[in-house]
Every structure is written in structure tokens, then in C-alpha cells.
């Protein structure tokens, strides 16, 4: 997998270049509070990216992550506003709902045979709608978001000395995700399905089950992200996480995963999430007009995607050429060997 290593080192190189560039040209960038703010910004996207990595490696896509975040956040807000149930109930409910939502995605894709894009597009609408429906309302019927005052829950948005809890959670989730992906049969099967669905099926892998698990993992990660995001904002609003799915997918793809599946890993997505966060954070230091932020972000994504495609095509060509050379060498050897000896 040498080309994977090169690709990974390249992302790390880009990351370093970015850090050095920002650090050298702006004295506000390399300050302690900024670094940990930066990590905090990367964390929620990063946690979601871990889950989405699984889905994308299976050659799928998940567009519903932002909406699941909103729905889980709304459920927590409702629990804290209307009841005095302990914090762990809200956390458990959130995680269960995230898992359920992910499982629903999996069902739609495997049972109803809907393409991933369409299934998650529709669940995006469903969960966003549900978040709106259960939003806390005032007596006149208009939405009135309430501040969450449950101190136990708000601890999630806090830090341990300088490091934010969400950053710690990010790395824990990332390690877990990478572990599952690289060290369990489930992970191997995930790659197998992404590389070639047919071969995987023929090998006896239960592709449907793996797909469902991938989506469930994505849903759980969305729920975890939602809990931290809500704790940080100290409230839940129905529009939470709008557009988040695109940032997450961009991070995953920049980190090395391909939509065609079978490539990339959680580590790459972590780098991707950090990359996006550093880019966003760094741009703020120069006091450019707001328009430049999104223009630069868009350009960077395009450049990364083009580079990725060109690099992988060149690698594939090289492999194909190497394969052809091997074939010719084998044929030549066989001709020489067949001439000298008998059948072997």
C-alpha cells in the first residue's frame, strides 16, 4: 500500500505547510488559545467525519449527518426543558436516536435498494423536519429556543485545563474508529465492499449487514457530535448543522477517501478535518472580507479533489503498466522455460 502512504504523507505535508504559512504571517495564529479553539472547531466535524469515513469507504455517501445532529440536539433540549431526568438519560437517548437514524439509513439502502444519495437525502429532510416539529414553542406557537441550564450536561462543552473535552472525545472516537477499521473483520469487510461489491458478495461477506453497520456508526458519530455541539452552544436550534454534511464529506475526501470506495481511513479523515479547520481559522486572521473565506475554501477543495484524482489515476496507470510488464515477463519466462524443459 505504498501509494496510500505517499498520499497520507502528502496530506500531512500540506497540513504542515498551511500551519507554517499561517504561523509565519500572522502572530495571532500560533497562540495557545487559538490552537485549542482551532482543535475545538475541528473536533465536531472530525467526530462526524470518522463515522462518514466508514460509509464512504463502502462506496456510499451520507447526506443526513447534519440533520441527525439537529434532531438529536432538539431531543436533548426537550428533555432538559420539560423534564428533570438525569444527564445520562439525555446522553443515552441521543446516542440511541443517532444509532437508530443511522440504522434507518442502512435499511433504506439495503432493503428498499435506494441509492445512498437518495436515501440519505430523504432522511435529511425527515430528520430536519422532525427537529422542527419537536422544537420548543412559546404559547403563541412560535419557536422559542431555550437555554439549557443543566450544569452536568454543560460540562461537555467545558475544558480540562486548556484542552476542550470535545477534542479529547474526537481523538478517542478517531482511535476507536481506526481500530475498528483496521483491526477487525468488520473493517476488512468494509474495504472489501467498497473495492468490489461483487467480489465481496461472492466471498460470502454479508454486504447488507456491513452497510447497515457503517450507517449506524455514522449515525452514532453524528449523535456524539450533536451532544458536544449542543453543550457548547448551550441550546439547540432547529437549523443546527445545516450544511455540516458538506464540510464533513469534504474533510473525508481531502483526507484521502474516494467516492468510488475502498480507499482511505480514519487517520486521513482526521487530517482532513484538521486541514479544513486550520484553513477556516487561519483565514480569519487576515481580516479579509467575508466573501474571500468561502471562495478560498471552495478553491482549496477543488484543488485537493483534482490532485487526488490525477494522483490516483497516475498510480493506477503505473500499476496497470507494471501488471502488463509482469504478464509479458511471465510469458517470456514460460516460453524460455517451456522450450528448455517439459510441462511443470
Amino acid at each position: 500500500m505504498r501509494q496510500e502512504t505517499i498520499r497520507r504523507l502528502f496530506s500531512l505535508l500540506l497540513l504542515s505547510i498551511l500551519i507554517v504559512a499561517f504561523g509565519a504571517t500572522s502572530k495571532l495564529f500560533l497562540t495557545l488559545p487559538n490552537i485549542f479553539t482551532l482543535l475545538r472547531e475541528a473536533s465536531v466535524t472530525g467526530i462526524l467525519a470518522v463515522g462518514v469515513t466508514f460509509v464512504i469507504i463502502t462506496a456510499g455517501i451520507d447526506l443526513s449527518t447534519g440533520a441527525i445532529v439537529a434532531f438529536v440536539a432538539m431531543v436533548c433540549a426537550n428533555i432538559f426543558y420539560y423534564t428533570t431526568l438525569p444527564v445520562w438519560v439525555a446522553l443515552a437517548a441521543g446516542l440511541l436516536i443517532g444509532a437508530g437514524a443511522g440504522y434507518l439509513n442502512g435499511l433504506l439502502v439495503t432493503r428498499l435498494h435506494l441509492p445512498d444519495f437518495i436515501a440519505t437525502l430523504s432522511t435529511q429532510g425527515i430528520f430536519r423536519g422532525l427537529a422542527l416539529i419537536i422544537a420548543i414553542r412559546s404559547s403563541t406557537g412560535s419557536i422559542s429556543n431555550k437555554v439549557i441550564t443543566n450544569q452536568g450536561f454543560l460540562l461537555l462543552g467545558d475544558r480540562v485545563s486548556v484542552v476542550y473535552l470535545v477534542t479529547i472525545a474526537f481523538f478517542v472516537v478517531a482511535l476507536l474508529g481506526q481500530g475498528i477499521l483496521k483491526m477487525t473483520p468488520l473493517g476488512t469487510h468494509t474495504y472489501a465492499i467498497g473495492s468490489s461489491r461483487k467480489s465481496a458478495d461472492l466471498s460470502g461477506i454479508n454486504s447488507d449487514r456491513v452497510k447497515k453497520v457503517a450507517f449506524t456508526i455514522s449515525g452514532i458519530c453524528s449523535a456524539v457530535g450533536a451532544l458536544f455541539l449542543t453543550a457548547r452552544m448551550q441550546t439547540a436550534i432547529p437549523e443546527l448543522g445545516t450544511g455540516l454534511e458538506f464540510d464533513v464529506i469534504a474533510a473525508v475526501v481531502i483526507g484521502g477517501c474516494a467516492f468510488s470506495g475502498g480507499r482511505g481511513d480514519v487517520f486521513g479523515s482526521v487530517v482532513g478535518a484538521l486541514f479544513m479547520a486550520i484553513l477556516t481559522n487561519g483565514i480569519y486572521k487576515y481580516n479579509l472580507p467575508a466573501a474571500f473565506h468561502i471562495i478560498i475554501k471552495g478553491c482549496v477543495i477543488i484543488i485537493m479533489v483534482i490532485f487526488d484524482s490525477v494522483y490516483h489515476r497516475r498510480m493506477d496507470d503505473r500499476i496497470r503498466k507494471a501488471g502488463k510488464m509482469l504478464d509479458q515477463a511471465a510469458a517470456a519466462a514460460e516460453a524460455a522455460g517451456g522450450g528448455a524443459g517439459g510441462i511443470s
Binding site: I19, T31, L32
Partner: peptide, 15 residues
């Protein structure tokens, strides 16, 4: 990546 982050943290003078 851990070394990078630690290096960043050390490189920064927190004030």
C-alpha cells in the same frame, strides 16, 4: 500528528 500538536502547543507562548 501527536508530535506536531505538542510542538505547536510548546511553540505557542500562552499569555
Amino acid at each position: 500528528i501527536t508530535v506536531m500538536i505538542v510542538a505547536l502547543a510548546l511553540a505557542a507562548a500562552g499569555q
